[in-house]
Write a protein that binds this DNA or RNA. Structure first.
Lengths: 261, 261
DNA sequence: GAGAGACTCTGTACAGTGTACGACGTACGA
DNA sequence: TCGTACGTCGTACACTGTACAGAGTCTCTC
């Protein structure tokens, strides 16, 4: 479960910020900053130092203003995260894969999302259950649905399939970021952690009580040098995800480019 | 990304706690509590009030001791979470599905994990990247691998497949818990949130610019009354996950019960 | 029996977090 | 010129995990 919530405040205010449609104030002193600068500063900070670094005080520090000043630009932290998310979506460069088989199209969608998560390690910490309904998300959603268009799926099925694919990518990216954070927090990478635990575990663990676990666990551990390898899990999982969707898509054998693959 | 880290401290100390093999102290006053009581109190608290409620002060309060007292039972919060996790795994009741087709076996594994997450809403907030290598996890791992045994998979493939399946369940459970937390935090359920946003969105959104997004988005929104429905996503996703694994498993058509399915 | 020393328990303290509130200065419209 | 709306900011509050030191309690050794 992500720790940071978005979509918390007044929907009208949030949407106005996302679509840049707030009324310009006429009284009072000129504003020193723009909302975009706040979002940019927060994003830069989070990119450099991870999700844990996103605090109003740190963001304000980056901008040379006091913490409370941020609240004149953004209703609160949740909305700031919404804006960061949508801006990140907006910066994604769309790859044109029209005309390619559907597996390639969906692989491109997955890879693009994975790349986004790698570039912005804080993305996984932000809930997308109530997504920021801004231009960035809309363009992304439109683009990604296009990769699923013309495959004979119903509209709800297209959404389901996309949710499934993106859910996989997000879960995997969270694991990867989690591994990075663990390495930083504990000054020990996964391999070292595994190396420290394995011999100790052997002393308390009775192999006869857990025959499969010891056999498979050590085989898997030996294969990636740790209990878990996100990169490998991505490659393995993506293949399974696409095969799973194939069972849905190739159900109807009569639709253009897609079925040919 | 889960916010709470486990496996942070000294592996030897953590393993001793997990396997109950610490040396009994001989000096000093009798201990008022037992480690199990601390773990139980923390689990009860978290079950009732969610992951956010797990704080050393709150747990101590439940037990009628001062916060710092907990540190004589447990090295820190990370290790407490490890113990909570392993204890929760230990309480899972294994369903005997041997002899059933592999799809049923894996469905049972997925359902059991989903039920665990529903019973313990804090599970999703805890990282399982460096899992607590205790008796609970071992028994669970052994049991779940058994559901994948005899299908012609290699040892690493068995681990990969299980990781993939459990990853899906965990990601979905996080979404579900996230929805619950959002409802509590914002005093607004997903349906209300969607109802508040949809009309506002219509005003700023140009349907011609995002034809697929508007069509599919509103179809999906209408189908579950919100942007996202975890229960539906679970049913849809589990079918895809099993189909995806089928492509791997049924690759070799010659192995007992499994291929018959 | 006396005392050393290990152990449990606890109060205080520190560096963080998001943000409510009120004070102060600035710029515009009347 | 003045009222008013607004931007900026200092302070404060209720939280978090846990380091540290002091006080009380028990066992083992002499």
């Amino acid at each position: 479960m992500p720790s940071e919530r978005t979509g918390g405040g007044d929907p009208a205010r949030t949407l106005a910020l996302l679509w840049n449609s707030g009324p310009a104030p006429r009284y009072g002193p000129a504003r020193r900053l723009r909302v975009e600068a706040v979002v940019e500063a927060a994003t830069g900070l989070a990119d450099r130092e991870g999700p844990g670094a996103i605090s109003m005080r740190r963001v304000a520090e980056q901008l040379g203003v006091s913490p409370m000043t941020l609240y004149t630009y953004v209703p609160g932290k949740a909305e700031l995260l919404d804006l960061m998310l949508d801006a990140a979506y907006q910066r994604m460069e769309p790859a044109d894969t029209s005309g390619r088989p559907w597996r390639e199209r969906l692989t491109a969608v997955a890879d693009a999302n994975r790349a986004l998560h790698l570039a912005h390690p804080w993305l996984g910490a932000v809930s997308t259950l109530r997504p920021p309904l801004g231009p960035g998300l809309m363009a992304k959603y439109e683009r990604e649905l296009a990769a699923l268009d013309g495959l004979g799926l119903t509209d709800p099925e297209m959404d389901d399939a996309l949710t499934f694919l993106l859910g996989f990518v997000q879960a995997n990216a969270r694991d990867a970021q989690d591994a990075r954070a663990a390495r930083a927090d504990t000054a020990m990478n996964d391999e070292q952690w595994w190396a420290a635990n394995a011999p100790l575990l052997e002393r308390v663990l009775d192999p006869d009580a857990y025959p499969l676990a010891t056999r498979v666990g050590s085989a898997a551990g030996a294969a990636h040098g740790s209990a878990h390898d996100p990169d490998h899990a991505y490659r393995f999982g993506l293949r399974r995800v696409l095969d799973g969707l194939a069972a849905l898509i190739d159900r109807r054998p009569d639709d253009g480019v897609s079925a040919a693959e």
